[in-house]
Design a protein around this nucleic acid. Structure first.
Length: 464
DNA sequence: TTTTGAGTTGTTCGA
DNA sequence: GTCGAACAACTCAAA
């Protein structure tokens, strides 16, 4: 009797799953998810994301039961729990989808060591990325990439593994195999902090993809920056936990103009995983050496709170931050607007924003989040002068929410404000403010900074 | 993947 | 009908 363990982490699906495909070659297979205390209580702990995870696990359990298996749940340190499960079940091998983040690699190295002592094999498989390629993608000089466009060109040319369908049946888990139930959020000591999150799970992921491919993708090339998000995919939370395989997305995308533009965004996810995988110190430090310890960051707690709570007085920023608190998700363009505002207008450390995003975002991914924050703070890879990444919040709204639909959705105080004042409501005269029920400083905050002044100050800070 | 300011040209409107 | 101020629309270079 052969027994395998399928240790699931961020690959919570049954379609296109190379590790599952390998593990199901055994006569018995134990699919297990381990709640890692280091993740539940660490600096990246998140109620919204964990709630989403619990839904994904429940859906995965259903999919496994439909195929004659079930999900096992453990809690504790993986190097102890996975090794213990291997002993309890007499497994010869543990199969995983390889992750490249610094945390994941440390964790997996520890588990591999613990298993080796018991003679259990630890087998890594692709599946997390469109191109699972920490090593194969290299510049002509043999170095990892630090600029997106050449990475993208090389990435497009690399061969891809074929996708795998969902198995119809899975090996039994054995009669007496041990394992707990999916816990509740409360029992994990966390709280759901967003009111209107996307539903978790592989079936939801597949229907979100189908909806996107059935229409929005056609406008993606021209419309993906529109803040209302009509033509974006909203797949990021599902990609983060692997409810859908990036390879399958790629394959189903096809070749249209919208598909090309979207494929480019899928590549950003691989790119930032590549970057963090090769530069684990980016998790805490600026990639650009000249900005390491040389930029003086503001520690204005009050301003930071105003930013978190969406009361900066800038509608573009406040709409974004309120969407984040409502949905645990934010349009990419909005992430850039609020990120530029925090780091450039308020001069607050990008790490504060990074941490807050990781707490609130359902799709919070260490590599992508870190990469994007370093990008907007002008301290990361893919460099561009700082002045190219200072966004004017009013100008951004005029371009990407011209009819004010986005702002009015998330900042109801501004609903009656006429379009032409929506980006800068403080320019309304007193009479107009009263007439549209939005007195500045009373119904809606005064702007907490002067953008033109803040911009000049930011340019000075970066001139080193 | 941006913003701002200067310079130019064109339009409107009242004297 | 003419003139000039004021302003809008646009291009371009620099940060």
């Amino acid at each position: 009797m052969t027994t395998s363990i399928l240790w699931l982490r961020r690959d919570l699906r049954v379609h296109d799953h190379p590790a599952l495909q390998a593990a199901r070659g055994a006569e018995r297979m134990i699919p297990v998810f381990c709640f890692d205390d280091a993740l539940l209580g660490g600096r990246h702990a998140s109620g919204p994301r964990t709630q989403f995870l619990l839904e994904c696990l429940a859906e995965l359990d259903t999919a496994l039961r439909d195929r004659g298996s079930r999900l096992f749940v453990r809690r504790g340190s993986p190097s102890r729990e996975i090794a213990r499960l291997a002993r309890e079940t007499g497994a010869e091998a543990v199969h995983v989808s390889a992750d490249v983040s610094p945390f994941a690699r440390r964790r997996d190295a520890a588990v591999r060591r613990a298993l080796r002592e018991d003679g259990v094999e630890f087998v890594s498989h692709p599946g997390m990325f469109a191109l699972d390629a920490l090593e194969p993608v290299r510049t002509g000089q043999g170095n990892p990439y630090t600029v997106f466009t050449p990475f993208y060109k090389s990435w497009l040319r690399q061969p891809r593994r074929p996708t795998i369908g969902a198995p119809r049946a899975l090996p039994s888990t054995g009669r007496n195999a041990p394992g707990g139930l999916v816990p509740t959020l409360e029992s994990l000591g966390l709280q759901q902090e967003v009111s209107d999150p996307a539903p978790g799970g592989e079936p939801a992921a597949r229907s979100v993809l189908t909806r996107f491919l059935g229409g929005p993708v056609d406008d993606y090339a021209d419309e993906h920056d529109t803040l209302t998000g009509r033509s974006v995919s909203r797949l990021s939370p599902y990609l983060h936990l692997g409810c859908i395989s990036p390879r399958e997305i790629e394959e189903r995308l096809g070749e249209s103009k919208g598909a090309e533009a979207f494929r480019r965004q899928v590549c950003w996810r691989d790119f930032y995983a590549h970057v963090l995988g090769h530069h684990p110190q980016n998790a805490r430090h600026e990639f650009q050496e000249r900005y390491r310890g040389t930029l003086t960051w503001s520690r204005a707690e009050k301003s930071f709170e105003a930013w978190c709570e969406g009361r900066t007085g800038f509608p573009a920023v406040d709409a974004g931050m309120r969407q984040l608190r409502r949905e645990g998700w934010l349009h990419n363009r909005a992430r850039l607007i609020v990120g530029s505002f925090l780091t450039k207008d308020l001069g607050i450390d990008w790490r504060w924003g990074e941490r807050y995003f990781m707490r609130m975002l359902i799709d919070g991914d260490e590599a992508s989040n870190n990469g994007n924050w370093q990008w907007i703070a002008s301290v990361g890879v893919d460099p561009a002068p700082a002045f190219q990444r200072i966004f004017n919040p009013a100008r951004q709204l005029e371009r990407f929410d011209p009819d004010g639909v986005y702002v009015r959705e998330y900042v109801p105080e501004l609903r009656e404000v006429p379009d032409e004042y929506l980006a800068e409501p403080w320019t309304m005269d007193e009479e107009l403010q009263s007439r549209c029920g939005c007195r500045i400083g009373d119904d809606y905050p005064e702007p907490i900074v002067d953008h033109a002044e803040a911009r000049r100050a930011a340019l000075d800070r970066y001139r080193i």
